[in-house]
């Protein structure tokens, strides 16, 4: 599926009257099955953009599109992952992962099978019966990822999904994400503040300006796939990373 924004602007009403321009205008098209990262200074409207594409915010002007559908409300074809895992504390790992199927009214046996199938490649099979309070940050984000993947979305919107993790965990889980994505080829838009991560995972990187965020750079990453962690030492990699670094500093 294709993700697109056409002259989209989002403004928030301020307490004292008046408006705060949080985003835009932005215009872009993300082609079906591509992995795109979004970089930008904090407060520039990255989360606002993700939330709007997820159908949680409405554009003041312009529009957001997923394929031919103008986004006005959430859709089960779109999976969203937030910076915090947002797991339901009274549900076990598998009960959390099954939630989307439960809401869709899938029978219990089907939910159980799907949960097992999802948890296995995420390395969570052993932890099915634990409660979120018992999980480390990395595990919690894996569960959150599993919960998004179980509804087999065609579009993945990830808002700094691994931002709260330490470097080790972060690299492991992002490589897991890359492996899953390369098998299923969803259209994926991921917000990150890590230039190396953006380059290593993506087909294309968008850079946003200060608030109200506009797209100020659009860089294709022509590194071969499959990608692997050591690629960060290759000249082609460093060149793209340096270019992005400069773009962000100008933002």
């Amino acid at each position: 599926m294709q993700i697109a924004a056409e002259g989209a602007v989002i403004e928030y009403a301020m307490a004292g009257g008046g408006h705060l321009a949080a985003l835009g205008p932005v215009t872009f098209i993300i082609e079906d099955g591509t992995f795109v990262s979004l970089l930008g200074p904090s407060g520039c409207g990255k989360s606002t953009l993700i939330r709007a594409l997820a159908g949680l915010e409405k554009p003041t002007r312009g529009s957001f599109r997923i394929d031919d559908r103008i986004v006005t409300s959430p859709s089960t074809e779109v999976g969203v992952m937030f910076q915090s895992a947002n797991l339901i504390p009274w549900r076990t790992v598998s009960e959390n992962v099954m939630l989307p199927l439960e809401l869709a009214g899938a029978p219990k046996s089907q939910r159980n099978n799907a949960s097992k199938r999802i948890l296995e490649p995420l390395g969570l099979s052993e932890y099915e019966t634990l409660y979120p309070g018992q999980l480390s940050g990395g595990m919690a984000q894996r569960v959150a990822l599993g919960r998004v993947l179980i509804q087999s979305p065609d579009v993945l919107l990830l808002d700094e999904p691994f931002g709260a993790l330490d470097a080790m965990n972060r690299e492991k889980i992002s490589m897991d994400l890359l492996r899953i994505w390369s098998q299923q080829r969803q259209t994926l838009l991921m917000v990150t503040h890590d230039v190396q991560e953006a380059v290593l995972l993506s087909d294309r990187v968008l850079v946003m300006s200060h608030r109200p965020g506009r797209i100020i750079d659009d860089v294709s990453v022509d590194l071969p796939r499959p990608r692997y962690s050591e690629m960060i030492y290759e000249p082609a990699f460093t060149e793209v990373a340096r270019h992005l670094r400069r773009a962000i500093d100008r933002a």
Partner: peptide, 20 residues
Amino acid sequence: GLRDVFKVMKATRWQLFTKL
């Protein structure tokens, strides 16, 4: 954040009530 999770999963008002 939990409300958002239910919203993006297209939970109905009733599901939001009973499950969250």
